[in-house]
Every structure is written in C-alpha cells, then in structure tokens.
C-alpha cells in the first residue's frame, strides 16, 4: 500500500510547535484541572515530551502507521502515561482524550499548510486521523489492563486479610468476621471455612460476627448456607457475637435462626464447643 508521507506533518510540528502545544493543552487542561489530578506545569511537560517522541518517530519513518517498529517509543510513552493515569483515577475517556485532542489543532495547521493541494490535504488528514485513532485506542487498552491488575491486586489483598480461620482447640475452628459482608468477599470467607473444616476434620466451627456492623438478609442467607454446608460435612456451627441491637433487627427481619446455635460472645461459644467435643478447660478454682 502506498502510504502518503508525513513530511508535511514534520514541517508543521517543527515550525508551529509552541502554538500547537498551547492549543492542545488548552483543550485538555480544563478536564484535568477540574478533577484536580495534575498541575498545569506537569501537563505541559507531559505534552512536550509526547510531541518530542512523536516527532522523532516521524523523522525515522514518515509512514503514518503506529504498528511499525519506529513507532515503538511512542507506544511506550503512551503505555506509561496510561498506566500512570489509571492509578491517578482518570477515566479511560479522559486518558484517550490526551491523544484525540491533538487532532483539531493539527487539522487546522494542515489545512493552512496544504491549502493549495486538496488531494494531499485529504490524504494526509485521513492518515493522521487513523494514526491518532489507533494511538488513542491503544491508551484505552493499556488503561484497561492497568485497572484490571490494580483491582486484582486489591482483591487479593482484601481476600487474604479477610480469611482468618483459626484453630482454637483440637476439633474447634473459629472464623471472626470483620467489616462489610458484601459481594464476593463473603463467598470466599465462607468457602475458606469449609475448606479448613475438611483439612482439620474439625467437628465445630464458631462464626463470630461481633465485627459485622450490619446483618441484613443477604448476610443472614450467607450464614445460613454456610451452616447448612458445614453440617453436610459433619461439622456443627455456632454463631457468636450477636449484639442486642442485631438480635432485635434479625427478629424484625423475620430471619429464622432457631436451628442454629447462637451465643452472645465468642467465649461462651468456645465453652459450649469444648463441652461438645468432650474437652474442658479447668478453671483455677476447679484445680484448687
């Protein structure tokens, strides 16, 4: 394919550099500053660097195709910028706008420059359009990937933090739940308890909800399902840490916990568990 040369573009980029930079920045700055994500100086520096690598690439290969190896530094620049913006809290659209907003100032210059050659103008414009489109989409792709890896990492951290199944005694497990029991987290926590029951062969599991601020029907359902699943695996569950206000709320909701052993404190639950497993802890008065 006979790709038109980018000579006109190099010409424009070197001669109108400062004006271009200002016009481009003007379009973009309002978004970025409104969201308080950056400073004007920082943005100007970023735009200037981009124009540098962009012009370099053009000089090495004036074929306007972002997939050619000569354009690798441009893609690398954008990749780093997109990943950075994903961490800073930009949206994907705002990130892609970095590239897209260069279109208009470039067109304006191209039109003046190639005034006398409409054929060349439309051809170069078209190719600049394609080039900036593919670079813009590239930022979106990188942005997306970065977001995903950030989210995946956060999720892992959360899940690790929130699966604290501990063995209190031979045959007795405890799962102190802390925080909001929404979404995927609950699922994972409950599954880890079941897993631990299998591994240790425990006969009793205490689920302590002292640290759970709200027990609504979704949380109740998760608890009931876990109790039922544990029972199928031969383990009894005790739910402890039901504070008075939570008890009242559960009753009004109409959740039926009559088939579940409940205790107000973890210590009470532990005592019951010891009795059931046939162990007991001797108190000082008993040994005396």
């Amino acid at each position: 394919m006979d790709t038109p040369k980018g000579a006109a573009l190099i010409e424009i980029l070197s001669r109108h550099r400062d004006a271009l930079l200002t016009e481009w920045l003007d379009q973009h700055l309002s978004i970025a500053l409104r969201r308080g994500l950056t400073t004007e100086a920082e943005m100007r520096e970023q735009f200037r660097s981009f124009l540098n690598v962009f012009t370099d690439a053009l000089q090495r290969s004036d074929i306007l195709d972002a997939n050619r190896p000569e354009w690798e530094p441009v893609r690398a620049f954008l990749a780093e910028m997109s990943a950075h913006r994903a961490r800073q809290g930009y949206t994907p659209v705002e990130t892609a706008t970095f590239v897209f907003s260069l279109k208009q100032p470039l067109y304006v210059r191209l039109r003046t420059e190639l005034d006398d050659d409409p054929a060349a103008l439309s051809e170069v414009s078209w190719n600049v359009n394609l080039l900036l489109d593919s670079l813009g989409l590239f930022t979106t792709e990188v942005f997306q990937r970065s977001r995903e890896s950030i989210i995946a990492r956060q999720q892992e951290e959360l899940l690790e933090l929130s699966t604290p199944v501990v063995q209190l005694w031979e045959g007795i497990l405890a799962l102190p739940l802390i925080g909001t029991l929404d979404s995927a987290r609950t699922q994972v926590v409950m599954e880890s308890l079941l897993q631990k029951i299998v591994e240790t062969g425990a006969g009793i599991a205490i689920i302590d909800i002292t640290g759970v601020p709200t027990v609504d029907t979704l949380v109740a359902q998760h608890l009931l399902k876990t109790v039922a699943a544990a029972r199928l695996m031969g383990a009894d569950c005790i739910i402890s840490g039901i504070r008075p206000q939570i008890a009242q709320t559960i009753v009004h909701l109409g959740v039926d916990l009559t088939n579940v052993t409940t205790k107000s404190t973890l210590a009470d639950a532990f005592t019951v568990a010891l009795q059931r497993t046939g162990s007991s802890v001797l108190t000082p008065s008993a040994t005396a």
Partner: peptide, 10 residues
C-alpha cells in the same frame, strides 16, 4: 440506628 440502616440496606 441499626434498624433503619438495615432497612436501608435491604
């Protein structure tokens, strides 16, 4: 508080 927050959650 707990009742109203729980109703809100539902």
């Amino acid at each position: 508080q707990t009742k109203f927050v729980t109703a809100a959650s539902e």
